[in-house]
Design a protein around this nucleic acid. Structure first.
Lengths: 114, 114
DNA sequence: CGTATTGTTCGAAAGGTATCGAACTGTTCG
DNA sequence: CGAACAGTTCGATACCTTTCGAACAATACG
């Protein structure tokens, strides 16, 4: 039996909902995660520069997975996370791209205002 | 003094945040309100076919206003609500349009599945 | 096998959110 | 003025979220 639970958490395309996705993206920590994934493609959970306990990060990844935004797969002893970009683009064209673009702009502006 | 409180609730463009907007849109009731506003342009609070008490509706409008998604103005004894489309498009290009399009597609699919 | 690594799960505390009924404010109209 | 209307505000309840530490599982490596 291979990593049973996590795969079940990730819904098929037909079960992804618009409010669910928007809710997942509406948390600053999760938005940050999505922005990094958008740039890096695939990252393990621990490789974010976020100052949080592992359990908090794990919670946010669970929300991202169960809403259908992020896919996670085992690779050795890490988990490799990636955006479900094709699924989301097929369901809600343009949303992911515009949120990512706005999120990056937001971060750039925050950095400039420091 | 003219309708003092409500205007203060509506933030200037500089105070609208991406997580705030996404959170406002992530509730099914509020998403429904936004979709109707997108079609109708301007609607009074009571003119939604939503089966809810006035106080619940009022709460959702408050969230929509304080996140910067909706503007409300007095007109006689009604309130006229409208989307802050230009402000949102300026801040987060494409997000509102893609959410509205996805929301309408979602509703159409729900109707077809009845 | 034992240990380190990576992340999950559990339980609890603190705060936020949705929902509702009842009371209230501001506006129009007779 | 007084009644009707449109929506807000208040208080209460129930639920959901975020956050954290501690304990647990799965994998890799010596």
């Amino acid at each position: 039996m291979v990593s049973k639970n996590i795969e079940q958490e990730q819904p098929p395309v037909g079960q992804i909902t618009l409010p669910g996705v928007l809710h997942a993206l509406s948390d600053p920590v999760r938005l940050e995660i999505v922005l990094k994934l958008a740039v890096a493609g695939e990252i393990a959970c621990g490789c974010f520069g976020l100052a949080m306990p592992k359990s908090s990060l794990s919670h946010h990844f669970k929300v991202l997975r169960s809403s259908g935004v992020v896919a996670s797969k085992r690779d050795g002893r890490k988990w490799v996370n990636s955006l479900r970009k094709e699924d989301l683009d097929g369901l809600f064209p343009g949303i992911l791209d515009s949120v990512i673009a706005a999120g990056h702009a937001m971060r750039a502006e925050e950095a400039g205002r420091k």
